[in-house]
Design a protein around this nucleic acid. Structure first.
Ligand SMILES: [Zn+2]
Ligand SMILES: [Zn+2]
Ligand SMILES: [Zn+2]
Ligand SMILES: [Zn+2]
Lengths: 143, 143
DNA sequence: TCTTGAACCTCTAGTCACTGTAGAGATTAA
DNA sequence: TTAATCTCTACAGTGACTAGAGGTTCAAGA
């Protein structure tokens, strides 16, 4: 295929510098080079980079992606660890949602209840000044 | 009251350096000083710092807190802007929740459906390799 | 074939978005 | 006497990029 780094960038939506960075941290393998030293990619590189970008879009860290790619490179292996990476990520997402829901609840109450007259009787201000007015003890902050 | 900076820290749970930092960015007013130059706080400082910490716990930025404190300092003013800061923050929280819920949905499907045999037939790997298998086009990413 | 200019190369260092934190070296309070 | 405080400067942390300088290569058009 002989795709240049710019061609790869164009096909995947990644930036050229990002591709070089991925190579540097060994997420992307070192491609062939022209006689002059420029990178030339095969079709597999497009797939691999698309995989990375999709995983990033889904919130996986580069470290997690590195492990997932390792699995994808060895189709014969048991996929348990891939599934557990996904489950781990799902757990983190759920935890974030729970914390944010706790915040949302508190903020909603503050905003809804305030009649909106002067600051002396503003429920927003009052609540911030006095945690006892809150229903949650820790606002979902994981300790 | 004549509270030292360490006493203020102990009463509020803030670190000494953080209190100095808040003074530096004008979130906390400059306190009285002893003849030797050490800070001495009044009771009001405890309340103000507690307000800041509570608002931080609720996820407000220091900039938002600065504005909220300004309102709290002028009880006669209309509290509309305080309410709108809280509403703005609530909106940000809701947006984050929505994005995370989109992720959660996708991840849940990946994890649930995979039978967990070899990587060649792993739904986690397959989904990451092929966005067409996803139900959401953008995974809730705000563009 | 020659020219030309966009695209590529490496390497280093910076950004982002924010909010703190850490240390050094000197002084003060009780 | 000694823990606490002072100022000042610079770094941290989190993770994933991103920017620029200064030089080289490729490919297409004349
Ligand atoms: Zn109000
Ligand atoms: Zn509270
Ligand atoms: Zn699987
Ligand atoms: Zn997808």
């Amino acid at each position: 295929m002989n795709i240049s780094i710019g061609g790869l960038a164009g096909r995947t939506g990644a930036k050229v510098q990002t591709i070089r960075y991925y190579e540097q941290i060994a997420l992307m393998p070192e491609p062939q080079r022209t006689h002059g030293g420029q990178r030339r990619y095969e079709a597999g590189a497009v797939k691999r980079l698309a995989f990375i970008r999709h995983a990033r879009l889904l919130g996986f860290s580069l470290d997690q992606i590195r492990n997932l790619l390792d699995l994808a490179d060895h189709p014969g292996r048991d996929c348990t660890s891939a599934d557990s990476i996904a489950r781990e990520h799902l757990g983190a997402v759920k935890a974030k949602i729970a914390a944010l829901n706790s915040l949302k609840k508190e903020l909603t109450r503050m905003v809804k209840t305030c009649s909106g007259t002067d600051a002396a009787h503003c429920l927003v201000i009052e609540t911030l000044a006095n945690h006892d007015l809150c229903s949650s003890a820790n606002h979902g902050v994981v300790t």
